[in-house]
Write a protein that binds this DNA or RNA. Sequence first.
DNA 1: GGGAATATGTGAAAAAGTTATCAAATAACC
DNA 2: GGTTATTTGATAACTTTTTCACATATTCCC
Lengths: 213, 213
Amino acid sequence: MARAKKIPSTTVSRLSVYVRALQKLRNEAVVTTSSEKLAEQVGLTAAQIRKDLAYFGQFGVPGRGYYVENLHNELAMILGINRRWEVALAGVGHLGYALLAYNGFKKQGFDVVVAFDKDPAKIGQTWEGVKIYDIAEARHVLPECGAEIGIIAVPAASAQEACDALVAGGLKSILSFAPGRIIVPPDVTVKRVELAMELEWLSYYATNIGERG
Amino acid sequence: MARAKKIPSTTVSRLSVYVRALQKLRNEAVVTTSSEKLAEQVGLTAAQIRKDLAYFGQFGVPGRGYYVENLHNELAMILGINRRWEVALAGVGHLGYALLAYNGFKKQGFDVVVAFDKDPAKIGQTWEGVKIYDIAEARHVLPECGAEIGIIAVPAASAQEACDALVAGGLKSILSFAPGRIIVPPDVTVKRVELAMELEWLSYYATNIGERG
DNA sequence: GGGAATATGTGAAAAAGTTATCAAATAACC
DNA sequence: GGTTATTTGATAACTTTTTCACATATTCCC
Ligand SMILES: NC(=O)c1ccc[n+]([C@@H]2O[C@H](COP(=O)([O-])OP(=O)(O)OC[C@H]3O[C@@H](n4cnc5c(N)ncnc54)[C@H](O)[C@@H]3O)[C@@H](O)[C@H]2O)c1
Ligand SMILES: NC(=O)c1ccc[n+]([C@@H]2O[C@H](COP(=O)([O-])OP(=O)(O)OC[C@H]3O[C@@H](n4cnc5c(N)ncnc54)[C@H](O)[C@@H]3O)[C@@H](O)[C@H]2O)c1
Protein backbone atom coordinates (compact mmCIF):
# COMPACT_ATOMS: atom_id res chain seq x y z
CA MET A 1 0.00 0.00 0.00
CA ALA A 2 2.86 2.37 0.75
CA ARG A 3 3.96 3.49 -2.67
CA ALA A 4 7.31 5.22 -2.78
CA LYS A 5 7.36 6.93 -6.15
CA LYS A 6 5.20 9.75 -7.29
CA ILE A 7 2.72 8.64 -9.90
CA PRO A 8 2.59 10.65 -13.13
CA SER A 9 -0.77 12.21 -13.74
CA THR A 10 -0.75 10.75 -17.24
CA THR A 11 -0.42 7.30 -15.74
CA VAL A 12 -3.53 7.88 -13.64
CA SER A 13 -5.45 8.93 -16.74
CA ARG A 14 -4.34 5.83 -18.59
CA LEU A 15 -5.48 3.66 -15.70
CA SER A 16 -9.01 4.73 -16.59
CA VAL A 17 -8.42 3.65 -20.15
CA TYR A 18 -7.22 0.24 -19.01
CA VAL A 19 -10.20 -0.19 -16.73
CA ARG A 20 -12.56 0.51 -19.57
CA ALA A 21 -10.75 -1.92 -21.86
CA LEU A 22 -10.85 -4.58 -19.17
CA GLN A 23 -14.56 -3.99 -18.60
CA LYS A 24 -15.10 -4.61 -22.27
CA LEU A 25 -13.08 -7.82 -22.18
CA ARG A 26 -14.94 -8.99 -19.11
CA ASN A 27 -18.24 -8.41 -20.83
CA GLU A 28 -16.96 -10.55 -23.66
CA ALA A 29 -16.09 -13.26 -21.14
CA VAL A 30 -12.37 -13.03 -21.94
CA VAL A 31 -10.41 -14.52 -19.05
CA THR A 32 -6.84 -13.46 -19.72
CA THR A 33 -5.09 -10.82 -21.76
CA SER A 34 -1.56 -9.49 -22.15
CA SER A 35 0.13 -6.13 -22.20
CA GLU A 36 0.56 -6.63 -25.94
CA LYS A 37 -3.13 -7.27 -26.58
CA LEU A 38 -4.25 -4.53 -24.25
CA ALA A 39 -1.86 -2.14 -25.98
CA GLU A 40 -3.41 -2.88 -29.32
CA GLN A 41 -6.89 -2.51 -27.88
CA VAL A 42 -6.30 0.92 -26.43
CA GLY A 43 -3.74 2.24 -28.87
CA LEU A 44 -0.66 2.42 -26.67
CA THR A 45 2.55 0.43 -26.37
CA ALA A 46 2.90 -2.72 -24.29
CA ALA A 47 5.89 -1.28 -22.44
CA GLN A 48 3.85 1.74 -21.48
CA ILE A 49 1.17 -0.41 -19.95
CA ARG A 50 3.60 -2.58 -18.02
CA LYS A 51 5.42 0.52 -16.78
CA ASP A 52 2.18 2.10 -15.63
CA LEU A 53 1.12 -1.02 -13.75
CA ALA A 54 4.57 -1.37 -12.20
CA TYR A 55 3.99 1.81 -10.22
CA PHE A 56 1.36 -0.01 -8.24
CA GLY A 57 2.64 -3.54 -7.95
CA GLN A 58 2.79 -6.82 -9.83
CA PHE A 59 -0.46 -8.00 -11.33
CA GLY A 60 0.63 -10.28 -14.14
CA VAL A 61 1.76 -13.83 -14.56
CA PRO A 62 4.92 -14.19 -16.65
CA GLY A 63 4.32 -16.41 -19.64
CA ARG A 64 0.58 -16.01 -19.22
CA GLY A 65 -0.38 -12.34 -19.01
CA TYR A 66 -3.07 -10.79 -16.84
CA TYR A 67 -6.30 -12.22 -15.53
CA VAL A 68 -8.89 -9.78 -16.81
CA GLU A 69 -11.13 -9.85 -13.79
CA ASN A 70 -8.28 -9.65 -11.32
CA LEU A 71 -6.55 -6.76 -13.06
CA HIS A 72 -9.83 -4.93 -13.39
CA ASN A 73 -10.50 -5.26 -9.70
CA GLU A 74 -7.01 -4.13 -8.78
CA LEU A 75 -7.14 -1.07 -10.99
CA ALA A 76 -10.63 -0.19 -9.81
CA MET A 77 -9.35 -0.29 -6.26
CA ILE A 78 -6.33 1.87 -7.10
CA LEU A 79 -8.54 4.42 -8.83
CA GLY A 80 -10.97 4.32 -5.95
CA ILE A 81 -13.86 3.34 -8.19
CA ASN A 82 -14.62 0.07 -6.47
CA ARG A 83 -17.31 1.95 -4.61
CA ARG A 84 -20.09 4.41 -5.18
CA TRP A 85 -19.33 8.14 -5.23
CA GLU A 86 -22.04 10.61 -4.45
CA VAL A 87 -21.85 13.71 -6.57
CA ALA A 88 -23.27 17.19 -6.09
CA LEU A 89 -24.14 19.31 -9.10
CA ALA A 90 -23.97 23.11 -9.04
CA GLY A 91 -25.93 24.75 -11.83
CA VAL A 92 -28.88 22.99 -13.41
CA GLY A 93 -28.91 24.81 -16.74
CA HIS A 94 -28.55 23.27 -20.15
CA LEU A 95 -25.37 21.41 -19.40
CA GLY A 96 -26.31 20.64 -15.82
CA TYR A 97 -29.56 19.09 -16.92
CA ALA A 98 -27.78 16.94 -19.50
CA LEU A 99 -25.49 15.70 -16.74
CA LEU A 100 -28.45 15.00 -14.46
CA ALA A 101 -30.26 13.06 -17.14
CA TYR A 102 -27.18 11.08 -18.09
CA ASN A 103 -27.12 7.60 -16.64
CA GLY A 104 -23.64 6.74 -17.88
CA PHE A 105 -22.03 8.15 -14.73
CA LYS A 106 -24.23 6.13 -12.45
CA LYS A 107 -23.22 3.01 -14.29
CA GLN A 108 -19.60 3.82 -13.45
CA GLY A 109 -20.49 4.45 -9.83
CA PHE A 110 -20.83 8.23 -9.89
CA ASP A 111 -24.25 9.17 -8.70
CA VAL A 112 -25.61 12.72 -8.67
CA VAL A 113 -27.58 12.84 -5.44
CA VAL A 114 -28.10 16.55 -4.95
CA ALA A 115 -28.18 19.69 -7.09
CA PHE A 116 -27.86 23.40 -6.42
CA ASP A 117 -28.91 26.44 -8.35
CA LYS A 118 -29.50 30.11 -7.78
CA ASP A 119 -32.64 30.45 -9.86
CA PRO A 120 -35.74 30.60 -7.57
CA ALA A 121 -37.77 28.93 -10.32
CA LYS A 122 -35.64 25.81 -10.03
CA ILE A 123 -34.93 25.74 -6.31
CA GLY A 124 -37.17 23.27 -4.49
CA GLN A 125 -37.97 21.24 -7.57
CA THR A 126 -36.94 17.66 -8.14
CA TRP A 127 -35.50 16.77 -11.54
CA GLU A 128 -34.64 13.25 -12.53
CA GLY A 129 -35.15 12.29 -8.92
CA VAL A 130 -32.63 14.85 -7.70
CA LYS A 131 -33.73 17.70 -5.49
CA ILE A 132 -32.50 21.19 -6.31
CA TYR A 133 -31.45 23.38 -3.40
CA ASP A 134 -30.44 27.00 -3.16
CA ILE A 135 -26.67 27.18 -3.66
CA ALA A 136 -26.57 29.33 -0.52
CA GLU A 137 -27.68 26.24 1.40
CA ALA A 138 -24.81 24.12 0.13
CA ARG A 139 -22.76 24.48 3.27
CA HIS A 140 -25.61 23.04 5.30
CA VAL A 141 -27.01 20.52 2.85
CA LEU A 142 -23.77 18.94 1.65
CA PRO A 143 -22.47 17.64 4.98
CA GLU A 144 -25.76 15.81 5.45
CA CYS A 145 -26.06 14.16 2.07
CA GLY A 146 -22.62 12.58 1.87
CA ALA A 147 -21.59 13.88 -1.53
CA GLU A 148 -17.82 14.03 -1.95
CA ILE A 149 -17.40 15.20 -5.53
CA GLY A 150 -18.81 18.41 -6.99
CA ILE A 151 -19.54 19.35 -10.57
CA ILE A 152 -19.70 23.00 -11.54
CA ALA A 153 -21.98 23.83 -14.47
CA VAL A 154 -22.76 27.45 -13.76
CA PRO A 155 -21.81 30.42 -15.97
CA ALA A 156 -18.13 31.37 -15.83
CA ALA A 157 -18.91 34.57 -13.95
CA SER A 158 -20.47 32.56 -11.11
CA ALA A 159 -18.00 29.72 -11.08
CA GLN A 160 -15.81 31.00 -8.26
CA GLU A 161 -18.84 31.74 -6.14
CA ALA A 162 -20.41 28.34 -6.76
CA CYS A 163 -17.09 26.63 -6.11
CA ASP A 164 -16.69 28.48 -2.82
CA ALA A 165 -20.14 27.26 -1.79
CA LEU A 166 -19.27 23.64 -2.59
CA VAL A 167 -15.96 23.92 -0.76
CA ALA A 168 -17.75 25.46 2.21
CA GLY A 169 -19.91 22.35 2.19
CA GLY A 170 -16.81 20.22 2.59
CA LEU A 171 -16.15 19.02 -0.96
CA LYS A 172 -12.51 18.45 -1.82
CA SER A 173 -12.85 17.23 -5.43
CA ILE A 174 -14.42 19.36 -8.11
CA LEU A 175 -14.98 19.02 -11.83
CA SER A 176 -15.61 22.34 -13.51
CA PHE A 177 -17.04 23.03 -16.93
CA ALA A 178 -16.77 26.77 -16.55
CA PRO A 179 -13.96 28.41 -18.50
CA GLY A 180 -11.31 30.16 -16.42
CA ARG A 181 -9.27 29.50 -13.36
CA ILE A 182 -10.89 28.90 -10.01
CA ILE A 183 -9.01 29.55 -6.78
CA VAL A 184 -9.35 26.87 -4.11
CA PRO A 185 -7.61 25.94 -0.87
CA PRO A 186 -4.58 23.68 -1.36
CA ASP A 187 -6.39 20.58 -0.15
CA VAL A 188 -9.06 20.89 -2.82
CA THR A 189 -8.50 19.36 -6.25
CA VAL A 190 -10.11 20.97 -9.29
CA LYS A 191 -10.23 19.33 -12.69
CA ARG A 192 -11.35 21.57 -15.48
CA VAL A 193 -12.97 20.57 -18.74
CA GLU A 194 -12.62 23.40 -21.20
CA LEU A 195 -14.50 22.57 -24.32
CA ALA A 196 -13.58 25.77 -26.12
CA MET A 197 -9.94 24.82 -25.67
CA GLU A 198 -10.56 21.41 -27.16
CA LEU A 199 -12.09 23.05 -30.19
CA GLU A 200 -9.14 25.41 -30.46
CA TRP A 201 -6.84 22.43 -30.33
CA LEU A 202 -8.70 20.95 -33.29
CA SER A 203 -8.54 24.31 -35.01
CA TYR A 204 -4.77 24.34 -34.67
CA TYR A 205 -4.29 20.95 -36.23
CA ALA A 206 -6.84 21.67 -38.95
CA THR A 207 -4.99 24.90 -39.75
CA ASN A 208 -1.50 23.46 -39.58
CA ILE A 209 -2.04 20.28 -41.49
CA GLY A 210 0.67 17.68 -41.40
CA GLU A 211 2.01 18.47 -37.97
CA ARG A 212 0.31 15.41 -36.62
CA GLY A 213 -0.83 12.04 -37.85
CA MET B 1 5.68 30.32 -41.54
CA ALA B 2 7.93 27.34 -42.10
CA ARG B 3 8.43 25.95 -38.66
CA ALA B 4 11.15 23.39 -38.29
CA LYS B 5 10.49 21.74 -34.96
CA LYS B 6 7.57 19.62 -33.98
CA ILE B 7 5.30 21.43 -31.55
CA PRO B 8 4.42 19.60 -28.33
CA SER B 9 0.72 19.03 -27.99
CA THR B 10 0.89 20.52 -24.51
CA THR B 11 2.24 23.74 -25.99
CA VAL B 12 -0.74 23.97 -28.30
CA SER B 13 -3.08 23.54 -25.36
CA ARG B 14 -1.30 26.26 -23.43
CA LEU B 15 -1.60 28.60 -26.39
CA SER B 16 -5.34 28.53 -25.76
CA VAL B 17 -4.71 29.49 -22.18
CA TYR B 18 -2.55 32.42 -23.24
CA VAL B 19 -5.15 33.60 -25.73
CA ARG B 20 -7.80 33.62 -23.03
CA ALA B 21 -5.54 35.53 -20.65
CA LEU B 22 -4.73 38.06 -23.36
CA GLN B 23 -8.42 38.47 -24.17
CA LYS B 24 -9.00 39.31 -20.56
CA LEU B 25 -6.17 41.86 -20.51
CA ARG B 26 -7.44 43.41 -23.72
CA ASN B 27 -10.89 43.79 -22.23
CA GLU B 28 -9.25 45.58 -19.32
CA ALA B 29 -7.51 47.88 -21.81
CA VAL B 30 -4.07 46.68 -20.75
CA VAL B 31 -1.58 47.53 -23.50
CA THR B 32 1.51 45.54 -22.58
CA THR B 33 2.35 42.57 -20.42
CA SER B 34 5.38 40.37 -19.78
CA SER B 35 6.07 36.66 -19.60
CA GLU B 36 6.38 37.14 -15.85
CA LYS B 37 2.97 38.75 -15.44
CA LEU B 38 1.30 36.35 -17.83
CA ALA B 39 2.83 33.46 -15.95
CA GLU B 40 1.32 34.65 -12.71
CA GLN B 41 -2.02 35.20 -14.38
CA VAL B 42 -2.31 31.70 -15.77
CA GLY B 43 -0.37 29.79 -13.14
CA LEU B 44 2.69 28.76 -15.13
CA THR B 45 6.36 29.79 -15.20
CA ALA B 46 7.66 32.67 -17.29
CA ALA B 47 10.24 30.41 -18.90
CA GLN B 48 7.51 28.05 -19.99
CA ILE B 49 5.62 30.82 -21.72
CA ARG B 50 8.69 32.19 -23.50
CA LYS B 51 9.62 28.69 -24.57
CA ASP B 52 6.16 28.02 -25.94
CA LEU B 53 6.14 31.26 -27.89
CA ALA B 54 9.64 30.62 -29.21
CA TYR B 55 8.34 27.67 -31.22
CA PHE B 56 6.44 30.10 -33.37
CA GLY B 57 8.66 33.15 -33.61
CA GLN B 58 9.57 36.30 -31.77
CA PHE B 59 6.71 38.36 -30.45
CA GLY B 60 8.22 40.32 -27.62
CA VAL B 61 10.23 43.47 -27.15
CA PRO B 62 13.24 43.05 -24.84
CA GLY B 63 13.05 45.40 -21.91
CA ARG B 64 9.36 45.98 -22.56
CA GLY B 65 7.49 42.71 -22.82
CA TYR B 66 4.61 41.89 -25.17
CA TYR B 67 1.99 44.10 -26.69
CA VAL B 68 -1.26 42.49 -25.59
CA GLU B 69 -3.20 43.08 -28.76
CA ASN B 70 -0.35 42.08 -31.02
CA LEU B 71 0.42 38.86 -29.15
CA HIS B 72 -3.27 38.00 -29.03
CA ASN B 73 -3.57 38.40 -32.76
CA GLU B 74 -0.47 36.36 -33.43
CA LEU B 75 -1.58 33.49 -31.21
CA ALA B 76 -5.09 33.58 -32.64
CA MET B 77 -3.58 33.24 -36.09
CA ILE B 78 -1.35 30.36 -35.03
CA LEU B 79 -4.27 28.54 -33.45
CA GLY B 80 -6.37 29.23 -36.52
CA ILE B 81 -9.04 31.00 -34.49
CA ASN B 82 -8.75 34.34 -36.26
CA ARG B 83 -11.71 33.21 -38.32
CA ARG B 84 -15.11 31.61 -37.97
CA TRP B 85 -15.36 27.83 -37.89
CA GLU B 86 -18.59 26.17 -38.89
CA VAL B 87 -19.40 23.17 -36.78
CA ALA B 88 -21.66 20.18 -37.40
CA LEU B 89 -23.30 18.41 -34.50
CA ALA B 90 -24.15 14.71 -34.58
CA GLY B 91 -26.69 13.69 -31.96
CA VAL B 92 -29.16 16.18 -30.58
CA GLY B 93 -29.94 14.48 -27.29
CA HIS B 94 -29.45 15.91 -23.82
CA LEU B 95 -25.82 16.84 -24.32
CA GLY B 96 -26.24 17.80 -27.96
CA TYR B 97 -29.04 20.17 -27.08
CA ALA B 98 -26.93 21.79 -24.38
CA LEU B 99 -24.19 22.34 -26.94
CA LEU B 100 -26.66 23.78 -29.42
CA ALA B 101 -28.09 26.16 -26.86
CA TYR B 102 -24.66 27.24 -25.66
CA ASN B 103 -23.55 30.56 -27.07
CA GLY B 104 -20.07 30.47 -25.58
CA PHE B 105 -18.67 28.65 -28.59
CA LYS B 106 -20.07 31.14 -31.03
CA LYS B 107 -18.39 33.91 -29.09
CA GLN B 108 -15.07 32.15 -29.67
CA GLY B 109 -15.82 31.74 -33.35
CA PHE B 110 -17.17 28.19 -33.34
CA ASP B 111 -20.63 28.19 -34.79
CA VAL B 112 -22.89 25.14 -34.96
CA VAL B 113 -24.58 25.52 -38.32
CA VAL B 114 -26.06 22.08 -38.88
CA ALA B 115 -27.14 19.11 -36.80
CA PHE B 116 -27.77 15.44 -37.47
CA ASP B 117 -29.75 12.81 -35.67
CA LYS B 118 -31.26 9.43 -36.30
CA ASP B 119 -34.52 9.97 -34.47
CA PRO B 120 -37.38 10.63 -36.97
CA ALA B 121 -39.08 12.80 -34.36
CA LYS B 122 -36.16 15.23 -34.47
CA ILE B 123 -35.19 15.08 -38.13
CA GLY B 124 -36.53 18.04 -40.07
CA GLN B 125 -36.99 20.25 -37.05
CA THR B 126 -35.07 23.42 -36.38
CA TRP B 127 -33.70 23.92 -32.86
CA GLU B 128 -32.00 27.10 -31.77
CA GLY B 129 -31.96 28.12 -35.41
CA VAL B 130 -30.14 24.96 -36.47
CA LYS B 131 -31.80 22.49 -38.79
CA ILE B 132 -31.63 18.82 -37.90
CA TYR B 133 -31.00 16.39 -40.77
CA ASP B 134 -30.99 12.63 -40.95
CA ILE B 135 -27.46 11.46 -40.21
CA ALA B 136 -27.69 9.34 -43.33
CA GLU B 137 -27.78 12.59 -45.30
CA ALA B 138 -24.55 13.86 -43.79
CA ARG B 139 -22.43 12.92 -46.78
CA HIS B 140 -24.65 15.05 -48.99
CA VAL B 141 -25.50 17.88 -46.62
CA LEU B 142 -22.06 18.53 -45.19
CA PRO B 143 -20.20 19.40 -48.38
CA GLU B 144 -22.81 22.04 -49.08
CA CYS B 145 -22.92 23.75 -45.71
CA GLY B 146 -19.22 24.36 -45.25
CA ALA B 147 -18.83 22.86 -41.78
CA GLU B 148 -15.29 21.70 -41.10
CA ILE B 149 -15.45 20.52 -37.50
CA GLY B 150 -17.78 17.83 -36.19
CA ILE B 151 -19.00 17.16 -32.67
CA ILE B 152 -20.22 13.70 -31.77
CA ALA B 153 -22.85 13.54 -29.04
CA VAL B 154 -24.53 10.25 -29.82
CA PRO B 155 -24.59 7.16 -27.58
CA ALA B 156 -21.29 5.26 -27.47
CA ALA B 157 -22.74 2.37 -29.41
CA SER B 158 -23.51 4.68 -32.35
CA ALA B 159 -20.34 6.77 -32.16
CA GLN B 160 -18.39 4.92 -34.83
CA GLU B 161 -21.35 4.97 -37.18
CA ALA B 162 -21.97 8.68 -36.63
CA CYS B 163 -18.29 9.44 -37.03
CA ASP B 164 -18.15 7.51 -40.30
CA ALA B 165 -21.04 9.60 -41.55
CA LEU B 166 -19.29 12.85 -40.66
CA VAL B 167 -16.06 11.69 -42.25
CA ALA B 168 -17.96 10.65 -45.35
CA GLY B 169 -19.22 14.22 -45.45
CA GLY B 170 -15.64 15.44 -45.61
CA LEU B 171 -14.95 16.46 -42.01
CA LYS B 172 -11.36 16.02 -40.87
CA SER B 173 -11.61 17.32 -37.29
CA ILE B 174 -13.90 15.74 -34.76
CA LEU B 175 -14.63 16.28 -31.09
CA SER B 176 -16.26 13.26 -29.49
CA PHE B 177 -18.08 13.02 -26.20
CA ALA B 178 -18.79 9.34 -26.59
CA PRO B 179 -16.69 7.04 -24.45
CA GLY B 180 -14.45 4.63 -26.35
CA ARG B 181 -12.08 4.72 -29.25
CA ILE B 182 -13.24 5.65 -32.71
CA ILE B 183 -11.37 4.46 -35.79
CA VAL B 184 -10.78 7.11 -38.44
CA PRO B 185 -8.60 7.49 -41.53
CA PRO B 186 -5.13 8.86 -40.79
CA ASP B 187 -5.93 12.32 -42.11
CA VAL B 188 -8.78 12.77 -39.64
CA THR B 189 -8.09 14.12 -36.15
CA VAL B 190 -10.29 13.05 -33.28
CA LYS B 191 -10.21 14.69 -29.88
CA ARG B 192 -12.12 12.88 -27.20
CA VAL B 193 -13.66 14.32 -24.07
CA GLU B 194 -14.25 11.52 -21.61
CA LEU B 195 -16.07 12.87 -18.63
CA ALA B 196 -16.19 9.56 -16.80
CA MET B 197 -12.40 9.49 -16.97
CA GLU B 198 -12.17 12.96 -15.49
CA LEU B 199 -14.32 11.81 -12.60
CA GLU B 200 -12.15 8.74 -12.13
CA TRP B 201 -9.11 10.98 -12.05
CA LEU B 202 -10.73 12.92 -9.23
CA SER B 203 -11.64 9.66 -7.53
CA TYR B 204 -7.98 8.62 -7.61
CA TYR B 205 -6.71 11.77 -5.95
CA ALA B 206 -9.58 11.77 -3.45
CA THR B 207 -8.72 8.17 -2.57
CA ASN B 208 -4.96 8.61 -2.46
CA ILE B 209 -4.76 11.83 -0.54
CA GLY B 210 -1.47 13.61 -0.40
CA GLU B 211 -0.08 12.43 -3.72
CA ARG B 212 -0.74 15.82 -5.20
CA GLY B 213 -0.95 19.36 -4.05
C1' DG C 1 10.15 -33.65 -14.90
C1' DG C 2 12.38 -31.11 -18.41
C1' DG C 3 12.53 -28.17 -22.35
C1' DA C 4 10.31 -24.78 -25.32
C1' DA C 5 7.47 -20.92 -25.54
C1' DT C 6 5.62 -16.93 -23.69
C1' DA C 7 5.08 -12.63 -21.40
C1' DT C 8 6.14 -10.22 -17.23
C1' DG C 9 8.81 -6.73 -14.48
C1' DT C 10 12.71 -3.83 -14.41
C1' DG C 11 16.90 -1.31 -15.14
C1' DA C 12 19.11 1.27 -18.63
C1' DA C 13 18.78 4.27 -22.74
C1' DA C 14 16.44 7.56 -25.28
C1' DA C 15 13.29 11.10 -25.98
C1' DA C 16 10.48 14.73 -24.59
C1' DG C 17 9.38 18.47 -21.90
C1' DT C 18 10.38 21.93 -18.23
C1' DT C 19 13.11 25.06 -15.64
C1' DA C 20 17.20 27.95 -14.93
C1' DT C 21 20.62 30.93 -16.70
C1' DC C 22 22.50 34.59 -19.26
C1' DA C 23 24.04 37.41 -23.18
C1' DA C 24 21.86 40.62 -26.18
C1' DA C 25 18.42 43.94 -27.18
C1' DT C 26 15.49 47.64 -26.08
C1' DA C 27 13.45 51.24 -23.38
C1' DA C 28 13.49 54.63 -19.83
C1' DC C 29 15.80 58.04 -17.48
C1' DC C 30 18.84 61.57 -16.39
C1' DG D 1 23.75 60.59 -25.63
C1' DG D 2 25.21 57.52 -22.40
C1' DT D 3 23.97 54.74 -18.41
C1' DT D 4 20.90 51.79 -15.95
C1' DA D 5 17.06 48.81 -15.54
C1' DT D 6 14.23 45.48 -17.92
C1' DT D 7 12.88 41.64 -20.33
C1' DT D 8 13.35 38.93 -24.19
C1' DG D 9 15.16 34.76 -26.84
C1' DA D 10 18.30 31.14 -26.84
C1' DT D 11 21.03 27.73 -24.82
C1' DA D 12 22.09 24.70 -21.33
C1' DA D 13 20.91 21.91 -17.37
C1' DC D 14 17.69 19.27 -15.44
C1' DT D 15 13.52 16.45 -14.80
C1' DT D 16 10.07 13.58 -16.31
C1' DT D 17 8.18 10.28 -19.29
C1' DT D 18 8.53 6.87 -22.78
C1' DT D 19 10.75 3.23 -25.13
C1' DC D 20 13.90 -0.49 -25.40
C1' DA D 21 15.92 -4.80 -24.16
C1' DC D 22 16.45 -8.77 -21.57
C1' DA D 23 16.89 -11.69 -17.45
C1' DT D 24 13.46 -14.02 -14.92
C1' DA D 25 9.35 -16.33 -13.87
C1' DT D 26 5.60 -19.25 -15.24
C1' DT D 27 2.87 -22.15 -18.10
C1' DC D 28 2.20 -25.70 -21.45
C1' DC D 29 3.18 -29.89 -23.53
C1' DC D 30 5.54 -33.92 -24.34
N1 LIG E 1 -23.92 24.21 -22.49
C1 LIG E 1 -22.79 23.77 -23.01
O1 LIG E 1 -22.82 23.02 -23.94
C2 LIG E 1 -21.47 24.18 -22.48
C3 LIG E 1 -20.33 23.89 -23.19
C4 LIG E 1 -19.08 24.27 -22.70
C5 LIG E 1 -19.00 24.91 -21.49
N2 LIG E 1 -20.11 25.19 -20.81
C6 LIG E 1 -19.99 25.87 -19.54
O2 LIG E 1 -20.78 25.22 -18.58
C7 LIG E 1 -21.39 26.17 -17.75
C8 LIG E 1 -22.90 26.02 -17.79
O3 LIG E 1 -23.35 26.20 -19.10
P1 LIG E 1 -24.90 26.12 -19.43
O4 LIG E 1 -25.02 26.21 -20.89
O5 LIG E 1 -25.49 24.95 -18.74
O6 LIG E 1 -25.42 27.47 -18.78
P2 LIG E 1 -26.95 27.84 -18.41
O7 LIG E 1 -27.03 29.30 -18.41
O8 LIG E 1 -27.87 27.05 -19.24
O9 LIG E 1 -27.11 27.31 -16.91
C9 LIG E 1 -26.46 27.87 -15.83
C10 LIG E 1 -27.23 27.51 -14.57
O10 LIG E 1 -26.49 27.93 -13.45
C11 LIG E 1 -27.35 28.61 -12.56
N3 LIG E 1 -26.54 29.53 -11.77
C12 LIG E 1 -26.08 30.76 -12.10
N4 LIG E 1 -25.34 31.27 -11.12
C13 LIG E 1 -25.32 30.35 -10.14
C14 LIG E 1 -24.70 30.27 -8.88
N5 LIG E 1 -23.93 31.26 -8.41
N6 LIG E 1 -24.89 29.17 -8.15
C15 LIG E 1 -25.63 28.15 -8.60
N7 LIG E 1 -26.25 28.16 -9.79
C16 LIG E 1 -26.09 29.25 -10.55
C17 LIG E 1 -28.37 29.28 -13.43
O11 LIG E 1 -29.55 29.55 -12.68
C18 LIG E 1 -28.58 28.20 -14.49
O12 LIG E 1 -29.55 27.26 -14.08
C19 LIG E 1 -20.91 27.51 -18.22
O13 LIG E 1 -19.81 27.91 -17.45
C20 LIG E 1 -20.48 27.26 -19.62
O14 LIG E 1 -19.45 28.12 -20.01
C21 LIG E 1 -21.36 24.83 -21.28
N1 LIG F 1 -25.40 13.76 -21.15
C1 LIG F 1 -24.25 13.89 -20.54
O1 LIG F 1 -24.14 14.62 -19.61
C2 LIG F 1 -23.05 13.14 -21.00
C3 LIG F 1 -21.92 13.12 -20.20
C4 LIG F 1 -20.80 12.42 -20.61
C5 LIG F 1 -20.81 11.77 -21.81
N2 LIG F 1 -21.90 11.80 -22.56
C6 LIG F 1 -21.87 11.09 -23.84
O2 LIG F 1 -22.40 11.92 -24.84
C7 LIG F 1 -23.16 11.16 -25.73
C8 LIG F 1 -24.56 11.72 -25.80
O3 LIG F 1 -25.17 11.67 -24.53
P1 LIG F 1 -26.63 12.16 -24.31
O4 LIG F 1 -26.90 12.12 -22.86
O5 LIG F 1 -26.86 13.42 -25.02
O6 LIG F 1 -27.47 11.00 -25.02
P2 LIG F 1 -28.98 11.05 -25.50
O7 LIG F 1 -29.47 9.66 -25.51
O8 LIG F 1 -29.72 12.06 -24.73
O9 LIG F 1 -28.89 11.59 -26.98
C9 LIG F 1 -28.34 10.86 -28.03
C10 LIG F 1 -28.89 11.41 -29.33
O10 LIG F 1 -28.20 10.78 -30.42
C11 LIG F 1 -29.17 10.34 -31.37
N3 LIG F 1 -28.57 9.23 -32.11
C12 LIG F 1 -28.49 7.93 -31.74
N4 LIG F 1 -27.83 7.23 -32.68
C13 LIG F 1 -27.48 8.10 -33.64
C14 LIG F 1 -26.78 7.98 -34.87
N5 LIG F 1 -26.27 6.82 -35.28
N6 LIG F 1 -26.61 9.09 -35.61
C15 LIG F 1 -27.10 10.28 -35.19
N7 LIG F 1 -27.76 10.46 -34.04
C16 LIG F 1 -27.96 9.36 -33.28
C17 LIG F 1 -30.38 10.00 -30.58
O11 LIG F 1 -31.54 10.04 -31.40
C18 LIG F 1 -30.38 11.09 -29.53
O12 LIG F 1 -31.02 12.23 -30.00
C19 LIG F 1 -23.10 9.74 -25.25
O13 LIG F 1 -22.10 9.05 -25.93
C20 LIG F 1 -22.72 9.88 -23.81
O14 LIG F 1 -22.00 8.77 -23.36
C21 LIG F 1 -23.02 12.47 -22.18
